[in-house]
Simulated assay, not measured.
Amino acid sequence: MTRYSKALPQLGGDLFLVYLGMETDLIFSQGVDLPGFASYPLLETKEGRAHLRRYFHDMIDLGRAKGAGVILESPTWVANRDRAAGIGYAPETLRARNIEAIELMASVREECPDLPTVLSASIGPRTDAYAPSDIMAADEAERYHSEQIEVLASTSTDMIGAYTLAYPEEAIGMVRAAQTFDLPIAVSFTVETDGCLPTGASLRDAIEATDQATDGYASYFLVNCAHPDHFTGILTQESWMRRLKGVVANASRCSHAELDEAEELDAGNPLELGRQLAEIYTHHPNITILGGCCGTDMRHMRAIAQAVRTP
Rank of each mutant, 00 (worst) to 15 (best):
T2W: 10
K6V: 09
K6I: 12
A7S: 14
G13F: 09
V18E: 10
G21Y: 08
M22Y: 00
L26K: 00
S29I: 00
P35C: 09
F37K: 10
G48S: 08
R54T: 12
D58I: 03
D58R: 12
M59D: 10
I60K: 04
I60H: 08
I60D: 07
L62M: 13
L62V: 11
R64G: 08
A65L: 13
K66F: 14
V70D: 01
E73V: 10
S74A: 14
P75H: 08
P75W: 04
T76E: 00
W77D: 07
D82R: 12
A85V: 07
G86L: 13
G88C: 13
L94Q: 10
R95M: 05
R97C: 08
N98D: 06
A101R: 03
L104T: 05
M105D: 01
A106F: 05
S107A: 15
V108G: 08
R109G: 01
P113D: 06
P113I: 00
L115V: 09
T117A: 15
S120Y: 00
S120M: 11
A129V: 07
Y130N: 13
A131P: 02
P132M: 10
I135H: 10
I135S: 05
A137P: 03
A138R: 01
A138Q: 10
D139E: 15
A141G: 11
Y144H: 02
E150F: 11
V151E: 15
T157G: 04
T157S: 14
G161Q: 14
A162T: 01
A162M: 12
L165K: 01
A166H: 00
A171P: 02
I172D: 01
I172A: 02
Q179Y: 03
T180E: 11
F181H: 15
D182S: 11
P184W: 04
V191H: 00
D194F: 06
D194E: 05
C196L: 13
T199Y: 12
S202Q: 01
R204L: 06
D205C: 04
A209D: 11
Y217K: 02
A218I: 12
N224F: 07
N224D: 06
D229V: 01
T232P: 00
T236M: 09
Q237G: 14
W240T: 03
R243L: 08
K245P: 05
V248Q: 08
V248P: 03
N250W: 04
S255M: 06
H256Y: 09
A257Y: 03
E258H: 04
E258D: 10
L259H: 02
D260A: 13
A262F: 02
E263S: 05
D266F: 05
L273F: 08
G274Q: 05
Q276V: 12
A278Y: 11
E279C: 03
I280P: 01
Y281F: 15
Y281S: 12
H283V: 10
H283I: 11
H284E: 04
I289W: 05
G292K: 05
G292S: 11
C293M: 06
C293E: 07
M298K: 03
R299W: 00
H300A: 14
M301Q: 13
R302A: 10
R302P: 05
A305G: 06
V308A: 09
R309M: 11
P311N: 12
